[in-house]
């Protein structure tokens, strides 16, 4: 089920250094989500804080934040893709931080 949360707001992690901060969002039904990683300029991957079992692709739209649920395996692929991208770009501190998130979330 797809949710759009208004009013319009930028994604909490947008344009921010991610190594030293965490971003959270409230899903209307599932409560507190934490940011797993950035996907692209307008999308970030979030997971439910409590059990880290439900994953959402959150998109900033003119209408507000749109929550699209995705499966655990798809979420893992997105995070692995982001890790590869960071490794290729040589962003070592960000890669290390995200790899820790990967281990804590999926292993």
């Amino acid at each position: 089920m797809k949710f759009v949360q208004s009013p319009s707001a930028p994604l909490p992690g947008a344009n921010a250094a991610r190594m030293s901060r965490e971003s959270y969002l409230n899903h209307p039904t599932f409560g507190l989500l934490y940011q797993v990683c950035e996907v692209n300029a307008n999308q970030e991957l979030f997971a439910t804080l409590y059990a880290q079992r439900l994953f959402f692709l959150v998109t900033a739209t003119p209408e507000g934040l749109q929550f699209d649920p995705i499966g655990r395996s798809d979420a893992r692929i997105l995070l692995e893709h982001r890790l590869r991208s960071l490794r290729r770009s040589g962003s070592e501190p960000e890669y290390t931080a995200l790899h820790l998130v990967y281990k804590q979330t999926f292993l």
Binding site: Q5, N26, H27, P28, T29, F30, G31, L32, Y50
Partner: peptide, 21 residues
């Protein structure tokens, strides 16, 4: 307390829209 907060919001019937923990 986590369980209670979730239970309260369920009883409200609003979900977490606009409401912080």
């Amino acid at each position: 307390r986590w369980a209670a907060k979730e239970a309260v919001v369920k009883a409200m019937g609003t979900g977490w829209r606009g409401i912080r923990y």
